[in-house]
């Protein structure tokens, strides 16, 4: 772990680089690599949020991402989907997030009594059900998806001014990152982690375990929903294929590549995935077998380090620094054990 006193400087440096990048690289790279990585990073953060703080691996996050995206597509003017609303994009966005959280709370209420493989299966079922529902309900998903979804005007065109939407995604990423870090140190956040470590003890301490888990799942849904909204702002279209099993597996891979136990891993995993996905296509040997190649790389990373890239980084820094005990635990306990302890 980065020593506490270096966390802010390192964070600011990373953000500074992220701010300069779009002026250095091409518009294509800004849009297809950087922006895409930010959006997938936020989606992966919703998964890592639940995994690191709650010990829950959810396969329902792409479904929730899709709910938000389809909701925006239906609420605003677009080609396909419902024609009845024609709302302003901002109102549509807020409503879409509310709908996503509501669906998340519903799934959370059902899933919150389960753990481990059962939780995985329940959330997977919901992920698949949501996809199938949109596939069948062409009134909501259009034929061949919803296209030409209007974008917020002040961001200009995602095609002509790709850096604008990129910065929006950057700001939301930072907000999500800081929000999750902050949440982990609040009573609610610590209660969620306590349930991860010992639900029986939490009940004996007076906590309503089911309620806390349900609401925490709703927060995870909000994060996934933010990614889903940004995705349609950026992409201007969404189809049931966006949330098919393939993307669902890739999102899980992103989270695992980054490291399921540290929230920053979400964006690192997403960046690695997006770069590989782009570059591998142009490697002659790989060609159309991108998924296979990604799978092999994924396997290698997981075999090398169960904690993903963040896990590799942590085991190196532990070996290099060998801190005397308690050295990076500041007085207030700020960030000391948050969010979660890497998989050892």
């Amino acid at each position: 772990m980065i020593p506490a006193r270096l966390q802010w400087p390192v964070g600011i440096a990373v953000v500074a680089v992220a701010c300069v990048l779009p002026f250095v690289v091409s518009g294509f790279t800004t849009s297809q690599i950087l922006t895409r990585a930010m959006i997938l990073g936020i989606a992966a953060a919703s998964l890592i949020f639940l995994a690191s703080l709650g010990g829950w691996v959810s396969l329902g996050q792409t479904g929730l991402y899709g709910v938000a995206g389809f909701a925006v597509g239906n609420f605003v003017e677009a080609d396909g989907g419902s024609k009845t609303f024609g709302m302003n994009i901002w109102l549509a966005t807020i409503l879409a997030l509310l709908v996503t959280v509501a669906v998340g709370l519903l799934i959370g209420a059902i899933a919150s009594r389960s753990e481990g493989i059962y939780f995985l299966m329940i959330t997977l079922a919901f992920g698949v059900i949501i996809k199938l529902l949109f596939e069948k309900a062409t009134d909501l998903s259009g034929f061949g998806g919803i296209n030409q979804i209007v974008q917020p005007e002040i961001f200009g065109s995602a095609q002509l001014q790709p850096e604008r939407i990129y910065f929006v995604c950057l700001v939301v990423s930072i907000a999500v990152y800081l929000g999750v870090r902050y949440f982990a140190r609040t009573p609610f956040g610590l209660a969620f982690q306590g349930i991860r470590d010992n639900a029986t003890r939490m009940k004996a301490l007076g906590y309503n375990v089911t309620l806390i888990r349900t609401i925490a799942f709703g927060i995870g849904a909000l994060i996934a929903g933010l990614a889903g909204v940004l995705n349609v702002w950026w992409n201007t279209q969404i189809s049931p294929g966006t949330i098919d099993i393939g993307p669902l597996i890739f999102l899980l891979m992103i989270a695992i590549i980054g490291g399921l136990y540290r929230i920053e891993g979400a964006w690192i995993g997403a960046l690695i995935y997006v770069i590989l996905d782009n570059r591998l296509r142009s490697v002659e040997l790989v060609g159309e077998r991108v998924a296979t190649a990604l799978g092999i790389i994924f396997l290698l990373i997981v075999l090398l380090s169960p904690g993903g890239v963040m896990g590799i980084y942590e085991s190196i820094s532990r070996r290099v620094r060998r801190p005397p005990s308690g050295d990076d635990a500041p007085a207030g306990g700020e960030g000391a054990a948050a969010p979660g302890v890497a998989g050892d």
Partner: peptide, 12 residues
């Protein structure tokens, strides 16, 4: 013992 292994003593 039923403790929160991922949290510090103070956080527990």
């Amino acid at each position: 013992s039923r403790l929160f292994g991922g949290l510090s003593v103070a956080d527990n």
